[in-house]
Write a protein that binds this DNA or RNA. Structure first.
Lengths: 248, 248
DNA sequence: ACCGGACTTCCACCCGGTGAAAGGACTGGT
DNA sequence: ACCAGTCCTTTCACCGGGTGGAAGTCCGGT
């Protein structure tokens, strides 16, 4: 288009990679071209280069997905690998002690990004898995991260409106703000079937060396479980992880 | 250089990404330019684009490492994520039962690529972590994968020569071939301080729907542990994981 | 204060990237 | 079996973004 300057090759290529996400782990050529607003031949050329090099792979049905080379590169990202490694023994302890699912999440933009997940023996159904995203207002980890993030993020989310997942989801900004105040006071957040009917969670903040909240660790359990009684355990685990982050 | 045609932009950019690996998770501009054989200004431009977009991040000391966006992309690669998810409950069971470290690895080129690792309570020191690579001739998982890979790979490795890690490492091709024959017969492989003094492992193959070996699961323990007694447990776990791969 | 190494910016030049068009392949419906 | 529609692949004349040597800046070590 004459009015719009052509994007650089680098940005075009990266825009192809950026089209892959948890909602669309596989895509056709046409879908990628549409999402990147690139002509088919251009998208086709980029995909050819990426699949030849092993960064993407082409499935028998012609769709594309992330390949081994990107997976391997992803394993090199230390921001979460170190945190995960530090956190894992405490999360395993927590899972052993409570027999429930345990998760670790970090704030990423306007969502909670799950960077570690250990399914419990009783394996309550959660939407979360490593790499998965959770809303900030409806989950334990999300509330912990939102409480620490400051009022600007809350405002921005409020403007967009909060999505209701169940009849228990808190979608009124004032009510949520008060809820988050309590989270800050008590260093623990609950989600009582606010995300998924039948599932509750209790989360606590993991802090870095200057006390800033860098992650949240949570227990996810069936709603029949008395999660108030699990609050102490998750806070203890979060404290242990926090201490580890400060030792390094 | 006039005699050598200029590489495409796409290949140059990808060559920058390809310089990151487990040995060099962080690098300076100069190191990247040297490894990619790109002029400094060119490498600098690519790095600027990649860091602006969140694919790489620049550390306070000026070095670069893989960023969140590549980490997230990496989590989308299904080849190992699904296998990991399938395997994790069995690996956790194995770890609970034995209290030792448990690993899952796949064949990648001429190495065993660790795609999952659960540290044991007794946490024997291993070189392995997720994304890490292990030699095929000296580790339990490596032998399982090499045994299944056919004689061509063994020949190719023998030509290159086997590296000795400890005085117990098997580096004679004939002796290794007989060892692998036993692995195929018994569906279990041992490494008795062949990789690391003080560490032993026992591994068993995970098979796909057509019986082909797609991964190996292993227990890694201190050499004082009687790992022969753990062989049945790891074979059971491998069978369970194999059954799961066939149900999907 | 000085120096060396690493990094950043500039800009005249050029060659690799471009996409409309055409052709091929595949699939589903009749 | 045939046909239409959709998706994918290839071509090639054109052009604009990419290029890297040189110069400048910054920073850490002596």
């Amino acid at each position: 288009m004459a009015a719009e300057p052509r994007r650089s090759v680098v940005r075009r290529l990266l825009s192809v990679l950026a089209t892959f996400d948890t909602m669309t782990p596989t895509q056709s050529l046409t879908e990628i071209a549409a999402r990147t607003e690139l002509p088919l031949p251009t998208a086709h050329r980029f995909l050819a280069e990426l699949t030849t090099g092993g960064w993407l792979e082409r499935l028998p049905d012609g769709r594309y997905r992330v390949g081994l080379r990107l997976w391997k590169l992803g394993t090199l990202a230390p921001s979460y690998r170190n945190l995960r490694e530090l956190a894992l023994p405490y999360m395993q302890d927590l899972q052993h002690a409570t027999r429930e699912s345990v998760q670790l999440a970090v704030l990423d933009g306007r969502t909670a990004l799950c960077v570690e997940n250990i399914n419990g023996v009783r394996s309550v159904s959660t939407m979360s898995r490593i790499g998965g995203r959770l809303p900030l207002h409806a989950t334990g980890t999300g509330k912990v991260l939102l409480a620490a993030a400051g009022t600007e993020l809350l405002k921005a989310l409020a403007e967009k409106g909060f999505r209701r997942f169940t009849r228990y989801t808190i979608i009124e900004p004032g009510r949520l703000a008060r809820n988050l105040e309590a989270v800050r006071d008590e260093q623990v957040a609950f989600s009582r079937e606010e995300m998924t009917l039948g599932a509750c969670s209790v989360a606590s903040p993991v802090t870095g060396e200057s006390g800033e909240v860098i992650a949240a660790v949570s227990i996810v359990a069936h709603s029949s479980v008395d999660i108030d009684r699990l609050a102490f355990a998750v806070r203890t685990a979060a404290s242990g992880i926090s201490r580890q982050t400060r030792l390094l």
